[in-house]
Design a protein around this nucleic acid. Structure first.
Lengths: 227, 227
DNA sequence: TAAAACAGGATTGTATACGATTGTGTCGAC
DNA sequence: GTCGACACAATCGTATACAATCCTGTTTTA
């Protein structure tokens, strides 16, 4: 993990782990042993437990009593629900954002997109995915809705896990197209258009997933042995 | 606190504290000393810390570093945001619920309302408020959206704190009227009506609050000494 | 007299030690 | 040979002890 900048407190450790999950450096189902993680960050288990609890609350890790913490493996059901929630929250939030966006915000969003492109060009798929999520989060921030932004933070992170499990398309380019279109709507301060684009973008995302029912828990193994 | 049924693990302790906050037995700003709470529940500080962390994540308590845990005092800003979020989530969820509700669900909802009335009749305002929140939560459960239901759980609990701080109307009767109307929409399986009623109900709630700007943090004290 | 520095007490932050539970591997019986 | 029981190892759950921090009341100084 990130031994370079060594986080000291549980909050930073949780953030670091969350980033690793978000960037697909930690795969769903990976066991996060308390002792092991504690040694990596150079702190006691106490702080690791706090960090894992926070991540468990955000549904990024699953805490199995007396058995340890594992990176979550969202079920197909949960995947649908996460995007249902995003569909309720994000379009209207995008509309609010478009109606109150400043020039500074626009510039910041553009820098975001540029970073995302750079990551894609350099083949850093994980980082690109993370930045793509941050784009959605930034919109909530621009809409000046901290509470909704928190929910979206969580939903975006969970979406990253869902993508790790159920993504079926090859190119991730569709993403940046959608984000570009949104940018134009924001630049034009067209709230209604932004709302529609965001709604469509989220639908595109879901339809890029393979959410046919299959046993959720063992996921890959069960799938591998059924054919 | 509830010494009668003594919760053993952090999760139950957190639930018990959350209930106390929800029912206005614990006022906003109340200090929750670790030692004190630990003695009440007959466990060590370790478990209390875990419970408080969970409540802090749900924004029901505020954790001040090296200073302790306090029952949260949502600012006016936060109050608005909470109801903004509810306005995005609940109406559509009510619609889904109305379109898929079963007769058993209807009966359960009716029992909920009856309990709420009973609590009001017996002057248990706190319990009535809690049950009123549970009504909203039950709708998300009926809509079969566990993820959204979790968000609503949190928002409803925070709303209870907001009501404790900013409620200005005398009678809480308007509540049950709205819930009755919703019941009728559910019974008729009228999703569009349910959505509209829920939207209106939430707007009514906000307009029953006194959200004029004032210093948020000291709230009661500052308010009390200013006149 | 008022303000600032200091000391004492109380409360939280962190680490560590011990007990409990679970998973696994081996041995024995049928 | 297979199934079941037992024991061991590993990991988590909880309590407790100690260190760090903050608040409060007192003392000192300008």
């Amino acid at each position: 993990m990130n031994k370079s900048l060594r986080p000291a407190d549980p909050e930073m450790i949780a953030a670091d782990l969350a980033l690793a999950i978000h960037e697909h450096r930690l795969a769903p189902g990976t066991k996060l042993s308390e002792d092991e993680v504690a040694e990596i960050y150079g702190v006691s288990r106490t702080q690791i437990r706090a960090a894992l609890q926070k991540l468990a609350h955000d549904r990024l890790v699953e805490l199995k009593r007396n058995r340890g913490a594992y990176v979550a493996q969202p079920s197909v059901r949960e995947a649908r629900e996460v995007f249902e929630a995003r569909a309720l929250l994000e379009p209207r939030t995008a509309r609010s954002a478009a109606e109150r966006i400043t020039d500074d915000d626009l510039a910041a969003l553009q820098r975001h997109i540029d970073e995302e492109h750079a990551a894609i060009r350099e083949g850093e798929a994980g980082r690109a995915l993370y930045l793509s999520g941050q784009f959605h989060l930034e919109i909530a921030r621009i809409a000046d809705q901290a509470t909704i932004a928190e929910f979206i933070t969580q939903l975006v992170a969970r979406s990253s896990l869902i993508i790790a499990l159920y993504w079926q398309r090859r190119g991730a380019l569709c993403e940046s197209h959608a984000h570009h279109a949104l940018m134009r709507a924001f630049a034009a301060r067209d709230g209604v258009l932004a709302e529609d684009l965001m709604r469509g973008h989220l639908l595109d995302l879901v339809s890029s997933l393979d959410l046919r029912n299959r046993s959720s828990a063992p996921a890959s193994l069960r799938e591998a042995l059924s054919g």
